[in-house]
Simulated assay, not measured.
Amino acid sequence: MKNCIFLCITIVSVFSFKGNAQNSKFYVTDKVSDKYAYVDVIKTYERIAAKGYKSIDIFKKIGDSYYFKADFDKAAKWYCELFAISIDLEPEYYYQYAKCLTFIGQNDRANEILEKLKQKSEAILEKKNRNLR
């Protein structure tokens, strides 16, 4: 009887472990000799953008990548492309773009972006207040 219970617990634990292992996010790249092959996704996105493909998602990813690496000159370039496509963006992009512009010395343009952020924030607050009434 004890052996049967032990066997059941062992089987259940093995299957539950396998189920958890399948849900984990672990990726293996193709192996090139003894080294792994990696793809520089940002460089790939830049090549796609250079060929003329314009996408809000691509410009966000490239700009964010350079922003979080503190390469504000390149980040400002891609955020400029992003804002040329659309100004209906999340507030964090206004702030990040303004910060990049400040770091590269374009304070007047940074102030314009922050003013647009302020106007957008006021519009959002006004809309929320109307909905609460």
Rank of each mutant, 00 (worst) to 15 (best):
E122S: 14
I5C: 12
Y93V: 03
A70V: 05
S55D: 13
A98K: 00
D108G: 14
K118T: 10
I62H: 00
T10M: 06
E81S: 11
E112F: 04
K18W: 03
N129F: 11
F17T: 11
Y79K: 09
D64P: 00
N20A: 15
A84D: 15
C4P: 03
C4N: 13
C8M: 11
I104L: 12
D108P: 07
Y38R: 01
P91M: 12
D64W: 00
R133I: 10
I124F: 09
F6L: 15
Q119R: 11
V32S: 03
I62N: 00
L82I: 03
I62M: 03
V32L: 00
E112M: 03
C8G: 10
K51S: 15
G19A: 09
K99E: 04
V14P: 14
A21L: 10
P91Q: 03
F103T: 15
F72P: 04
K99R: 10
I56C: 07
R109M: 10
Y53F: 08
I11E: 04
S55T: 05
E81Q: 15
R109Q: 13
P91I: 08
E112N: 04
V14K: 11
F68N: 10
I85V: 14
K116H: 03
Q106P: 03
Q96I: 02
V28Y: 07
S24H: 07
K60W: 09
A84G: 12
Q22C: 15
D30T: 02
Y53C: 14
E122K: 12
N20I: 07
S86D: 03
I42L: 01
A49Q: 06
N129P: 01
E112C: 01
V41Q: 08
F26Y: 02
E115W: 01
F68A: 06
Y45W: 12
Y66M: 04
Q96T: 02
E112G: 08
K54F: 04
K43L: 12
V39M: 14
I56T: 07
I58L: 11
Y97I: 00
E90N: 14
I9H: 05
I87A: 15
V28C: 09
L89T: 00
C80D: 12
G105D: 06
K31I: 05
A50H: 06
N131V: 08
I42G: 13
G52M: 04
K2W: 01
D64A: 02
I124C: 06
G19V: 02
M1L: 14
F26V: 15
K2A: 13
Y95D: 03
T102E: 13
F15H: 12
I56Q: 03
F83K: 05
E46D: 10
K31G: 11
K51F: 14
C100L: 07
Y97P: 06
N111C: 13
I87T: 14
R109A: 12
E92K: 11
V39P: 02
K31P: 05
D88T: 12
I11M: 09
K54Y: 07
I48L: 14
L89K: 02
R109N: 06
F103R: 01
N131Y: 07
K77E: 01
C4K: 13
L89G: 05
N129E: 15
T102M: 12
A49H: 04
V28W: 12
G105V: 06
L125P: 03
K128T: 06
